[in-house]
Write a protein that binds this DNA or RNA. Structure first.
Lengths: 339, 339
DNA sequence: CTGAAAGCGCTTACAG
DNA sequence: CTGAAAGCGCTTACAG
């Protein structure tokens, strides 16, 4: 019994309709479009004319279903407003776009529950692979990834448990920046932590390691706030730090936004930077080079991470699992004027 | 003749396989998942158990195809690195995500050819609607949109030709900011234009209108560079402007990034801002409030534009075409210290 | 409450 | 060079 025809949206011309119009079978239309060499010249022209005239646009959903593939990659990132991930995304797009993949972006808003929810719902798109930023997935999330055996590459950090990842050592970067401050003679170096995601915590561990090695460890110089990062928060936290520890001579802000806010507040308060107080950031986003004094920070290879991770994922999808699991792209100290 | 089975990727459990395992028909599994009320309690439990145990994840491609809908919205934006569009995207996501839509982001890189190419290829996803930023699509692009009769909402600007759009008047904003500078006694106000997209050109028209009305028109104060925007470019253009017009007493930078670069350069050169030279930006991005002196600029309702446009699109998709075609969300002068 | 049939719009072998 | 048949994995009516 034929089902009742459902209303289709305007202009949803199908292959069958083009076929009927031209007077050939659907598969010939398909071939004229996908493997034109297999269709005789004059017929092909008539078909392409009809396609143009009728405004036919192939239905990708149907094609992918028939081909039993999705040509889709899922990208799980914790934030869209954080420039760091935009840069990573740009790198991913630069590699995956030309490779014909559709990128599905899921914003987890730094929440483990959101992450699991988004992962589960987006698995329905049957992605060929997944790019995840951060290694701090909930155990549930990891279980799902493992279970579905989907090629997965982690972004922006390094793991040593065999998971594929492309990034750099957040801990080493935190240690290096702190080491630089120590070398410059700073002795009471505060750490300003916000958001408190895995990467921030590792930078803090690096700060602890460097302070410990120099005999300067002082946990009362650790200032944490779980709120999302912003310049305003950096300014406010600077006030809190100086109120609690007026003897502090340097502040390691866990990212550039905080540092820019802290720097502005310090200057408004008439605190000499870097003479009286060093202020350093992390990431080397564009504005870091344009503050006065220019910000000392750590440059992170964000776009390269995106590109390398995308390439790695394409390899994994193709079944090539050779090579190191963890790809370290390093980081660079950018010593400018603020510390 | 049955076709040869193609290899399916690991863990691609299908509805039919779950059905076989449970010993019922596929449709019953589908019902247990989508309309559980229609399946008897004990059977439903057995089914959900099997689904969980087998790690079944429905194939959205197949579902959407069967339902003859896509539940997808295409978003065409000119840039991902420009924070303006990230904010708009966040607003779109906030509305469309909860509504169950998948957002397909296509980055046109400010290129009309890219735009047309991306539009054509993404039409294959049969989106239910389109969100486009800017009104400057190529005629080809507009022809495609018209022809396919897809619900479309334009972002961040206003049109008067009946197209649906949500934004504000770029021209009026440019005029207002220039008017403010004139009121403050500036007489030789330069305009720094980059990228030269439609929105920038309209801001420049606003600048011209305000200067003209005050009898201050001077086209030699218009400085344009088609290069992409950056703080470094803002700094360089400031040098060029001052070299050509050392008598200039204000610079209207067509966006905040340029203004931040120009401001930094001016201060490095020892030029007093705003006393000797006013420098103003556009958009009121986060850093604008944290420069020294703080940047005078125009606040634009980016996230609200995203939200309102998404809601508008949902209405259009639902067939509701009542209401004004152009929704003006306005802008706000943010007078700070730099001009 | 459960199922057999048909269909969504395409592509992949296999014939001819 | 072109086509009839079967299938991708799901859902929608219609029966019972």
């Amino acid at each position: 019994m034929p089902r009742k025809p459902r209303p289709r949206s305007a202009n949803r011309v199908t292959l069958a309709e083009v076929a009927e119009a031209v007077g050939v079978s659907a598969i010939t239309i398909s071939r004229a479009l996908n493997t034109p060499a297999l269709v005789a010249e004059p017929l092909r022209e008539r078909i392409l004319d009809a396609v143009e005239r009728m405004g036919y646009v192939p239905n990708r959903q149907a094609r992918l279903l028939a081909e039993a593939r999705s040509q889709t990659v899922l990208v799980l990132i914790p934030s869209l407003t954080n420039t760091v991930f935009i840069d990573v995304l740009a790198g991913i797009e630069a590699v995956l776009g030309p490779a014909g993949y559709q990128i599905l972006i899921a914003n987890t808003h730094y929440s483990a529950e959101e992450e699991l929810r988004l992962l589960r719902s987006h698995l329905e798109y049957k992605p060929d692979g997944i790019l995840v930023s951060g290694l701090a997935q909930s155990p549930d999330c990891r279980a799902w990834l493992d279970r579905h055996g989907l090629p997965t590459v982690h972004l922006m950090d390094l793991a040593d448990d065999g998971r594929h990842c492309v990034g750099f050592s957040q801990l080493a970067a935190g240690r290096a920046l702190t080491g630089h401050l120590i070398e410059r003679g700073r002795r009471r170096i505060a750490f300003m932590a916000v958001q408190l995601d895995e990467r921030t915590l590792k930078r803090a561990d690096g700060w602890r390691a460097a302070l410990g090695a120099a005999g300067l460890a002082d946990e009362s110089l650790y200032f944490a706030d779980p709120a999302p990062s912003s310049m305003a928060l950096g300014a406010d936290l600077l006030d809190r730090i100086l109120a609690a520890r007026p003897d502090c001579d340097a502040v390691f802000c866990c990212n550039d936004d905080l540092a820019i806010g802290a720097l502005a507040r310090a200057r408004r308060r008439g605190i000499a930077v870097p003479e009286r107080l060093a202020i350093v950031g992390f990431n080397d986003l564009q504005p870091a080079a344009w503050t006065l004094p220019a910000l000392t920070t750590v440059a992170t290879p964000r776009e390269q991470v995106g590109r390398a991770a995308a390439r790695r994922l394409l390899d994994l999808i193709a079944g090539d699992v050779t090579g190191e699991a963890a790809v370290d792209l390093g980081f660079e100290l950018r010593v400018r004027e603020s510390g």
